[in-house]
Computed example of a mutant assay.
Amino acid sequence: MGTVTIGVSIAVPEPHGSRLQQLRAGFGDAAAHGIPTHVTLLPPTEADSAVLPAVEAHLAKVAAAGRPFPMRLAGTGTFRPLSPVVFLRVVEGGTACNWLQERVRDTSGPIRRELQFPYHPHVTVAHGIEEAAMDRAFAELADYEAQWPCTGFALYEQGADGVWRKLREFPFGGAVVPPQADRLDRGSLPIR
């Protein structure tokens, strides 16, 4: 059957997603138009295409156990000098993202993956570009803010052309962001 490159992420919704993608391209990041704006739950991972049905079944179970939670981005951060990345910080929703990524990669499931770096939820706005452009991205987006109710995540596949395409969405088991959702990141987990 062959090998595919997959990833799992939370999409940054419109109008924020397109706007951030345009800004990323404007900073000189050539990969910007092939990567939908997102918060990663599973980084690019090679898998046998025959395993995709099991992956989808596993992700459906993970999503069914979750419930909507608030996501908020505010300000910039960087992984430099360790990694040439400037990102928007996830200031609300990070605990829920961590909970999700642990379950996506759970050793009992079909996506067993060790991470190169400790998990840190973020939205990349510049990657692998000139230092001056990285500095510009960091400064220009320092006051950027966006928020939305996160209601699920999606499985993506990277095509031979380098473009990431959504294969399937996985909505959470609960359909409504609960009134207490603003407290989720202050100690409780997004599970029923």
Rank of each mutant, 00 (worst) to 15 (best):
M1N: 10
I6Y: 02
G7D: 02
G7P: 01
S9P: 02
A11K: 14
E14Q: 14
E14C: 08
G17S: 04
G17V: 06
S18N: 10
R19N: 11
A25F: 15
G26N: 05
G26F: 01
G28V: 09
A30Q: 12
A30H: 10
A32M: 05
G34F: 06
G34L: 10
T40D: 00
E46F: 03
A47W: 15
A47Q: 11
A54T: 07
V55C: 06
H58M: 08
H58S: 02
H58Q: 05
H58A: 02
A60V: 01
K61S: 13
V62E: 00
V62L: 09
A65M: 13
G66C: 15
R67A: 01
R67G: 01
P68V: 10
F69Q: 09
G75R: 03
G75T: 09
R80V: 12
L82P: 04
S83V: 15
S83R: 15
V85K: 03
F87L: 08
V91G: 04
E92R: 13
T95I: 15
C97D: 04
C97R: 05
C97V: 10
W99T: 02
W99H: 04
E102I: 12
T107V: 15
T107A: 13
E114R: 15
F117H: 12
P118L: 13
V125D: 01
H127C: 15
I129Q: 07
I129W: 02
I129A: 09
A133V: 08
A133D: 11
R136E: 15
R136K: 15
A137E: 07
Y144I: 11
Y144F: 13
E145P: 00
Q147G: 13
Q147E: 14
P149W: 00
T151G: 08
T151W: 00
G152P: 14
Y156L: 10
Q158F: 10
A160Q: 11
A160I: 03
D161W: 03
R165T: 11
L167Q: 09
L167V: 11
R168F: 05
E169P: 01
E169C: 07
F170A: 03
P171C: 04
G174Y: 05
A175T: 14
P178C: 06
P178Q: 09
P179N: 08
Q180P: 07
Q180C: 11
L184S: 07
D185C: 09
G187Q: 09
S188A: 08
P190M: 03
P190E: 04
I191E: 14
